[in-house]
């Protein structure tokens, strides 16, 4: 028996685990199996799955290792949301379940499926390698071990939170860009890249950044924040992505890539008008030729089908633009100061 009889006074609930099944050897397509078991308060999703595996169906396949939320093996989608099965309480999930008494368990998205709840992590490792997710120390190997780098608490705090990442790939699974483009760098890899890029011991900042600003890189993120919302370690992943972008503009200039130009166009519009001038945004981001070839036909179609209005000939500034501009400048000044102090 795996389920303890602790706190039995609080009773048990019959819970149906609707488990995603797929064995590539015999199944042509995935299906779901239902397993109904009594579950007490305090039991995690992983302990329930262990119980099902040990007592009902030994073929249900999933990864699990530390069972304490530190190794990152047992990430899966529980009622649609990617999380660690070992730290997810069954009763908490039930309370929010759309279908009463049912918990749906599925594999992570955006990684190739191997079997049941197991996905292939190799693509993620491949990206960590591609984006040099390591410190290439400024200290030559032969010198190592002799003396410490002196590192301020302030610098440590810059990457402290990012080093909490356990590579569970929940963010990978939730990422809306990856669903459309499997080659996208991935939130976890951006987070690790950021962690390396703010470490004063690292010597390959430029090289890594050169890779990050290319296609499928740091500029492809659309700020949907799903990575951050789903992070099992509550790491502010979007801060890291913003940090990398600021770093990219600072170290490579505003006109480096369409990504940096896009960001710059945003800034200009907001400062001038207090809002975006969307009609000309693609031109400023990707140039006239690209826009004419790639975007104009679709825009025309959308206008014809009344999916979007004709762009206004003139964009008016928002009300109170003068006060807004003062605020905007103060804010950008503040950010600059902040960046300077980081550099120290």
């Amino acid at each position: 028996m795996t389920l303890p009889t602790d706190q039995h006074t609080e009773g048990k609930k019959n819970v149906t685990f609707r488990v995603f099944r797929f064995n590539p050897q015999v199944d042509s397509k995935p299906y779901f199996d239902d397993y109904t078991i009594p579950v007490e308060r305090g039991i995690t999703v992983l302990r329930s799955l262990n119980y099902i595996k040990e007592h009902i169906d030994g073929s249900v396949s999933f990864r699990a290792f530390c069972q304490a939320g530190i190794c990152g093996s047992c990430s899966m989608r529980v009622n649609g949301l990617s999380q660690l099965a070992c730290t997810t309480q069954v009763w908490d999930v039930l309370a929010k379940s759309r279908e009463p008494g049912i918990i749906k368990v599925e594999p992570l998205r955006n990684l190739p499926l191997i079997k049941d709840l197991i996905v292939d992590m190799d693509p993620l490792v491949g990206k960590m390698v591609h984006y040099s997710n390591w410190i290439d120390s400024t200290m030559p190997e032969a010198q190592m071990g002799k003396k410490e780098f002196l590192i301020s608490e302030e610098e440590f705090l810059r990457y402290d939170k990012a080093t909490d990442c356990i590579l569970c790939a929940s963010c990978v699974s939730e990422c809306s860009i990856l669903r459309a483009n499997k080659e996208y760098v991935s939130p976890a890899v951006l987070l690790k890249s950021y962690r390396m890029s703010v470490d004063s011991r690292d010597s390959m900042h430029e090289q890594r950044m050169a890779e990050l600003v290319k296609d499928h890189g740091v500029w492809d993120c659309t700020h949907c924040y799903r990575c951050q919302e789903s992070c099992v370690k509550s790491i502010p992943i979007m801060d890291a992505i913003h940090g990398l972008r600021e770093d990219a503009i600072e170290s490579r200039g505003k006109n480096d890539t369409s990504g940096s130009k896009h960001a710059e166009a945003f800034m200009t519009d907001i400062e001038k008008k207090g809002k975006l001038i969307e009609a000309t945004l693609p031109i400023r981001t990707n140039g006239v030729v690209w826009t004419l070839q790639n975007l104009l036909p679709m825009a025309m179609k959308m206008i014809m089908k009344r999916r979007t209005p004709l762009p206004p000939p003139l964009v008016k500034s928002v009300k109170g633009i003068k006060i807004f501009r003062t605020m905007f400048r103060e804010m950008t000044e503040h950010v600059k100061q902040d960046q300077k102090s980081h550099k120290k």
Binding site: S137, Q143, M144, E153, F156, R201, D202
Partner: peptide, 8 residues
């Protein structure tokens, strides 16, 4: 020296 983030 290789990059472990020790507390300081």
């Amino acid at each position: 020296n290789m990059g472990t983030p020790w507390s300081r």
